[in-house]
Design a protein around this nucleic acid. Sequence first.
DNA 1: CGACACTTTGAAGACGATCAACGCCGGTGG
DNA 2: CCACCGGCGTTGATCGTCTTCAAAGTGTCG
Lengths: 247, 247
Amino acid sequence: MFVTAAPTPESHPLFINLPPTEAAALLKQGTTHLCKRGESLFRQGDPIRHFYLLTQGTIQLYRTNAQGDEKTVHILKSGQIIGEGEIMDGCSAHRMNAKAIADSTLLSFSASWLKETAKRYPEFALNLLSLLAQENHLAEIEAEHQATMSAAQLVACFLQRICVLYDYDPRKFTLPYPKSLIASRLGMEFETFSRTLAKLRENGIVVTGNEVSIQDLGQIAQYVCSICSIAEDCTTHHDLTIKVHKK
Amino acid sequence: MFVTAAPTPESHPLFINLPPTEAAALLKQGTTHLCKRGESLFRQGDPIRHFYLLTQGTIQLYRTNAQGDEKTVHILKSGQIIGEGEIMDGCSAHRMNAKAIADSTLLSFSASWLKETAKRYPEFALNLLSLLAQENHLAEIEAEHQATMSAAQLVACFLQRICVLYDYDPRKFTLPYPKSLIASRLGMEFETFSRTLAKLRENGIVVTGNEVSIQDLGQIAQYVCSICSIAEDCTTHHDLTIKVHKK
DNA sequence: CGACACTTTGAAGACGATCAACGCCGGTGG
DNA sequence: CCACCGGCGTTGATCGTCTTCAAAGTGTCG
């Protein structure tokens, strides 16, 4: 999940330690799939047929409950993978919906390809295990954040993550998707999201329209990360600090 | 994580599809470790040395932040495993604390044992992948719950899960650990937990001291599960319904 | 009996959801 | 070219929920 964009599929974390020829051969078994902005890739309840590697674009994963409320589970960017959990878990039907937020390109493999490859290539299996373990950690942290952070802190944390994920300059960048999507991703109402922006301004994050400027990382760390139990080994905040130092 | 208690380590989900002799040989590489009630198994920041299989007792996994607040991440029972995520993720230090809530017995393996075994036995790797994928799903659901459910709904959902996990009769069972621990597990204050009990009584769950009685599963489903986006494929609620039908 | 851990209850305040109104912008159609 | 509309975002007022601080009740084990 938390993977810096792989410039080419061959260099994806899944294929680390595999001979490049093997990786290329495996990748050839995938077919390219296009998904236009607004199009659905699959829906909750659909049979699981494919494992996907997103090579370009943005995919929203979301769930719907009986009341019709939507909750965004993930917003994926190029280099991230789709379906690995559901496939390894042995699910027969999708547990969420996938929709393109922007025109997207995916490499699609059969679901059994993933299991077979994991079985045949121990290195691949270990890479997949590592990815799942990372996703796991992030999901746990997210649950903790939801339980302990205020809306403003959630937003501040998310903005930092976006910044690392997209390799933006914290001092000035443009939101890669609408605010309402972020609100849905963070499990809050968009009115609440909007109101947090005032609070963030007091804490060194200025948002004007779609432009964000994180002015003082130290202040934000104080405001957000001091509450967080992973604080010192938070890769996000760590990477961000390094990023600014370099420039 | 969400594994019905394995009566013997050999029948643990990790060893499914492995020849029994192999499983037994692998298990022999572990050593038995005792952890008395209140004792710490490891702490946040400690180097990661072992993978554990909990064979008896109860282990609490929790995190502490700079402010000193504790958040319980998991409460494990026999049959569950410890450390798999951190090891597969390649962490060098523990990201949380582990403490015995009750006298516990663990089978301990070296961290490299886990990686080596996954590398050598494809079936084992697939089993481990399946377990991680399940944990993942649960963690995602938990984040969603934290974001969308009220305190009372969280408690109701948790009580149902306990019921399935420990194979209790929903109509009358005793809480396996103190209420304050449950509150910490659910990310709420224990005062809040206490107050939710009145609300639950109105919805068909009566708690008196440590005795719980879930009187009407349908009513609870209405109160809790109708909000939840996994509703129809929630193993917990599903299993619970079946359980009652059988009796 | 008294100490201590655990739990309950009360009152005050902070926070987020909800409902409602309005502003802004891009596109469409007359 | 302007009027209208729909998607998106902001702001205000109100209400219910959870936290916080404080006090008191319950239980068990020396």
